[in-house]
């Protein structure tokens, strides 16, 4: 099951050229780019590991691509995303976030039902990948 989260997630994978263009867009708007990675695909897992510090003084998308490619080399089958952080007052948040790398096989999620008191049922999703310890998942 293909994980879809962030911007462009329903489009086919972005090419490097398209990633570069998106990074350029973010830089033009004055947003700081950051690369993050994880091997836990749960949708509520919003705090991914940081790949280096956010790049506040970048002038060109090629610099971000340098980091993305480094991260891909180190974690070829992790999820990698690019965040664009807007520091203007009032926003001070991530304005754009898109996935640039994903594992070749994505086993998907299991729906767990927990029977509670009475006949209530609580639902939870569980990623099959997280059955294995971190670092051995993909």
């Amino acid at each position: 099951m293909r994980v879809t989260q962030g911007t462009f997630s329903f489009l086919p994978e972005l090419s490097d050229q398209e990633i570069h263009a998106q990074c350029e867009y973010a830089i033009r708007r004055g947003w700081a780019l950051a690369v993050e990675y994880t091997d836990d695909p749960h949708p509520r897992n919003s705090y991914w590991e940081m790949w280096g510090l956010p790049m506040f003084d970048l002038k060109d998308g090629a610099g971000a691509l340098l980091e993305i490619n480094d991260c891909r080399k180190t974690f070829p089958s992790h999820y990698i995303k690019v965040n664009a952080f807007d520091a203007t007052q009032g926003f001070e948040t991530v304005r754009m976030s898109f996935i640039v790398n994903r594992p070749p096989e994505e086993p998907g999620f299991m729906l767990r039902r927990q029977e509670g008191a009475g006949r209530t049922i609580r639902y939870t999703t569980h990623a099959y990948a997280t059955n294995k310890p971190a670092g051995e998942r993909y």
Binding site: D60, G63, A64, L66
Partner: peptide, 8 residues
Amino acid sequence: VLKRAMGG
């Protein structure tokens, strides 16, 4: 430094 200089 290289990252900052990219594009220029």
